[in-house]
């Protein structure tokens, strides 16, 4: 299984990676990108099975990344890991085709529940 983590914070990418490991997917192949544009370029090469994306990022933010993917017909599983906790943000995310929104700070259980639901 290939999982992409998109976040402009290297520290947060590291934490998400550890949570994926501890949620029961230690053998997942992890691909990282620092913003939406970099992710978009990599997705065409790497075809991930699941994308965990931050919302606020330079270059291209997470919601624009998701909309760009859906506009080109991609149905890749996509969810947000973000500090954006306003209720309407979740509606915006789901309307755009996201499967979930994990709010920072999060726990290992949050990731485990999401991975069980998505796969």
């Amino acid at each position: 299984m290939k999982i992409m983590i998109v976040d402009d914070s290297k520290a947060m990418r590291m934490i998400v990676r550890r949570h994926i490991d501890s949620a029961g997917l230690p053998d997942a192949e992890i691909v990282e990108a620092a913003n939406g544009q970099e992710a978009l370029d990599l997705i065409h090469q790497d075809a991930p099975d699941l994308i965990f994306s931050d919302w606020n990022m330079p270059e291209m933010n997470g919601i624009d990344l998701l909309r760009a993917l859906r506009a080109e017909g991609s149905e890749v599983r996509f969810g947000f890991v973000t500090s954006e906790s306003q209720p309407h943000m979740k509606d915006v995310a789901l309307d755009a085709g996201a499967l979930f929104l994990i709010v920072k700070p999060f726990s290992a259980d949050d990731f485990k529940a999401i991975l069980e639901r998505v796969f």
Partner: peptide, 13 residues
């Protein structure tokens, strides 16, 4: 930066 981002994001929420 990420610590401030998380606190700020939750305040915004």
């Amino acid at each position: 930066g990420e610590m401030a981002n998380m606190i700020g994001g939750n305040v915004k929420g």
